[in-house]
Design a binder for these strands. Sequence first.
DNA 1: TTGTGTTTTATTGCCTCC
DNA 2: GGAGGCAATAAAACACAA
Length: 516
Amino acid sequence: MEESGELHSEENKVVVEKNKKRRLKTPAQVTGLEKFYNEHKYPTEEMKLELAEELGLTEKQVSGWFCHRRLKDKRLLKDEACANVRQDRSSGVIQDHGSGLGQDSCGSTKHGDYKLLDPREVESRGLYGNDLLAADLTYEHRSRYTENISGRDDTSSESSSSLQDRSFPQGQDMYNMEPSTYLTPNRALPPLNPKSATNMGYKPSGYLKVKGEIDAITSVRKQIGKNYREDGPPLGVVFDPLPPGAFEYETDDPIQEPYYAANPALPSSPEISPVKRQPSLSSRYDSYNAKFSSQDSHMEGADLGSFHDSDFQDKKSHQQIKLRPNFQSHTNHLPGRNSSLDLYEDSIGEASVYNSDKNHRKITKNVIEGMRSDSASNHSDHYEGKADSLLHGHDTINPKNTQRSEYVKSKPSNSIRMPHVSVDTEERGLSTMTAKELKFKGDKKGRKKYQDLDRARMLPNEITVGERVMVDQPMQHNAKQAAVAGMQPQRNRRSALEMPSSFSEDETAETSSSLN
DNA sequence: TTGTGTTTTATTGCCTCC
DNA sequence: GGAGGCAATAAAACACAA
């Protein structure tokens, strides 16, 4: 490219930039990589080559990027585990996450700690499906007990969620299991994986180590209150009755529900009609190539929030559409799946809503820089032309602009987290509370970025976003369970909705007092 | 404007698996 | 032994507060 001997001044500049020791990936490239990473954490060599070619990168770069991306996931997971431990101890919640990582606390996130299931297997075998559903749900549900206390939007990356969740046997009712984890080892269903047993509380850890198991059980019983019955039905059933309209939405057809289960906010979205998951997860790279070129600026389209964050869209769709129309093109390339850019736009949009000052500044800056740095993006075209064609939505977005956007996304903020809470909780007061808590977590502002991103790229059976999801996900799981147990999914769904909600909220409110 | 902290990219060495 | 992955490290790029 730059070998041309008659380079103009700008081209020389390009050459200089290309010769820099380290080059940032263009937003298009990052997007493409992220999207691909969503689908394949361990791409094959062919896939890497293909991706590299598409993005105008070398295979080495792609490999390295994936490697680092995985490391980042892992690091985030570790941080999360650490944070959870801290929360456990500070909040006093009996918190034995069962997350193998959390257990031995921050330091030891070595392979053996979480490689209960080789990610590569999961990746390549497509275990994303139902296989991991229970586990994923369990983790999310588990996370809710603590992380919603602090307003922490668990963002374990897909790896984190999947990895952690792998310690839970499939098909095990999380509501049976979760309390069991807390209540008593006797009631806990024996994990299939011995390691998970260790992770799940058979060996007291964290708070249990401090308070002792008896105290822990007692405390949890207090938290659960009357709903806890030692010989009673699973907690998920105990909480069965749900006031009509408690969650504002019901579907007549539970069969179609799972989509909402994974995207609980969607039903409550007045703007987005229910969309069924597209039958085929032909989520290969080529498929999103096609999507990229077809979905632009069709946010309201059927594909659009087909899966994710429609609660965001409820509030901000308009703004976002106007603010960052181009990103829309990347958001839903996979039906029923979040994309990394979902986060981009989400956070941007939310930022514009909640952090109007800063973000307005940023956005303005973006616009300015967008104009200013067109040349930059132009001369990057020479090597990312394919990427642009691939991600043509970025054509009109200069890299800098997009990168800024990522930073906006990374803000710890209400902008990222609030929507999940504010929309889904009855009391907006929770939003403010969460905002404070978020502020408290300011130290993790940077990490948050990819935590959310990770959440966003969770797989169809994985949790999409936010607190609400943690509530609703179980219902998907329960629906599956119901199919086995002959229970009515809808009923279970309500149970699932009810239980964690009341449990966690009560728990949140009462934990400290009960323990005190 | 500058210093500081964070994130991202690149490199290297080691380990594991085939 | 080679390939692939992980972990550690360095350095650039960037954001943000003072």
